[in-house]
Amino acid sequence: MKKTLFLGLLAAASLTLTVSSCSNPDFQKNDEVVDTPLPPVPAAAEGQDSAATAEAAAKEEINAVNATNAIKKMQPQM
């Protein structure tokens, strides 16, 4: 009997705290959401340089040395 009463009181307290913590009187619903389409994706650059670079990158083996060299190429020179 005592266990049942204790569990009931515990469940009621838990439910009360849950309900009171979920309600927010300061919340205001804002329905001013504007759906705008995304701009079109720009076309890929055409030419031999971009094709050669993409082809060389695809053939290059992925390892620590090549990754380090690629990172060094991307960093600005000081």
Rank of each mutant, 00 (worst) to 15 (best):
K2N: 15
K3S: 11
L5I: 13
L5W: 00
L5K: 10
L5M: 04
L5T: 04
F6N: 11
L10W: 00
L10S: 12
L10G: 10
A13K: 01
S14F: 14
L15G: 13
T18A: 15
V19G: 08
V19K: 07
S20I: 15
S20Y: 12
S21A: 15
S21C: 06
C22W: 11
C22T: 12
S23D: 09
N24H: 03
P25K: 00
F27V: 06
F27E: 09
Q28E: 14
K29C: 05
E32R: 09
V33A: 10
V34C: 00
V34M: 03
V34L: 05
D35T: 07
P37I: 01
P39N: 12
P39R: 07
P39D: 14
V41N: 02
P42W: 03
A43E: 09
G47M: 01
G47C: 01
G47E: 03
D49E: 04
S50V: 04
S50T: 04
T53S: 08
T53H: 07
A54R: 06
E55Q: 12
E61C: 09
N63H: 06
A64P: 00
A64C: 06
A67Q: 15
K72C: 08
K72N: 12
K72P: 02
P76N: 05
Q77K: 14
M78S: 09
M78I: 03
